[in-house]
């Protein structure tokens, strides 16, 4: 199917009925990147954050309870798996499901952190992500209603999906963690556990890159 001059050659396709999960050069690169950071979240130990006391030379090291970091790691790995799924999914609905799962796990990664700023940011981000699922699933629903299928494989290059559905999909994914809604997430970065917090950014950037591909393909 991939004769489209958008994302490079098709490498591999795995068929499940009319749902075809596929790797193109583009999604394969994204997949490898997601895999790389999931592995990093699994194998690397978290950093030991240091804070400075403003107005002096003093600094102090923060103590982070290991149980908290273990939970963060679990959530980061779950987030990584959701990202991997979103990268190879050949189905609009599966893609939206993976997107909302990324939104949930992103909150999970920082939910255990006992820091007012982090929790507040996570709460706000959670609301935005929740609201964003409406356009996200709405986009997929409109695509289904107008074309009768959700398979990206079958929709590719047909131009059958209305512009509105594509825009809703993109808006939905932006709500899951791209600029300008990203700003709410900036404070989340205060949370300790670099390899896990990093997964938040990896997942939302990759998700956005994938939805751009989908919007151009279908």
């Amino acid at each position: 199917m991939f004769d489209l001059p958008i994302e490079g050659a098709e490498l591999l396709a795995v068929e499940f009925g009319d749902i075809v999960n596929y790797f193109s050069v583009y999604t394969a690169v994204l997949f490898v990147f997601a895999l790389l950071f999931t592995v990093l979240a699994i194998i690397s130990r978290p950093e030991k954050p240091v804070d400075i006391v403003f107005g002096g030379d003093a600094y102090y090291a923060k103590k982070i309870p290991p149980e908290q970091l273990r939970f963060q790691r679990f959530m980061a790995i779950a987030c990584g798996l959701a990202t991997l799924g979103a990268m190879i999914s050949g189905d609009l609905f599966n893609f939206t499901l993976f997107s909302s799962m990324i939104g949930i796990t992103n909150i999970g990664i920082v939910a255990a952190v006992k820091n007012k700023h982090v929790l507040e940011a996570a709460y706000q981000y959670g609301i935005v992500a929740m609201v964003a699922t409406v356009p996200l699933f709405g986009g997929a629903a409109i695509a289904l209603a107008t074309t009768g299928t959700l398979s990206i494989w079958e929709l590719a290059g047909a131009g059958a999906v209305p512009l509105l559905a594509k825009m809703l999909l993109v808006v939905g994914v932006m709500g899951e963690g791209m600029a300008p809604f990203y700003i709410g997430k900036a404070e989340i970065t205060r949370a300790p556990g670099a390899p896990y917090v990093l997964m938040i950014h990896v997942s939302s950037l990759l998700l956005f890159l994938r939805v751009v591909e989908i919007a151009l393909t279908v």
Binding site: R45, E47, K48
Partner: peptide, 8 residues
């Protein structure tokens, strides 16, 4: 010493 070594 404070860094997350592998990630660093």
């Amino acid at each position: 010493a404070t860094a997350s070594q592998t990630l660093f």
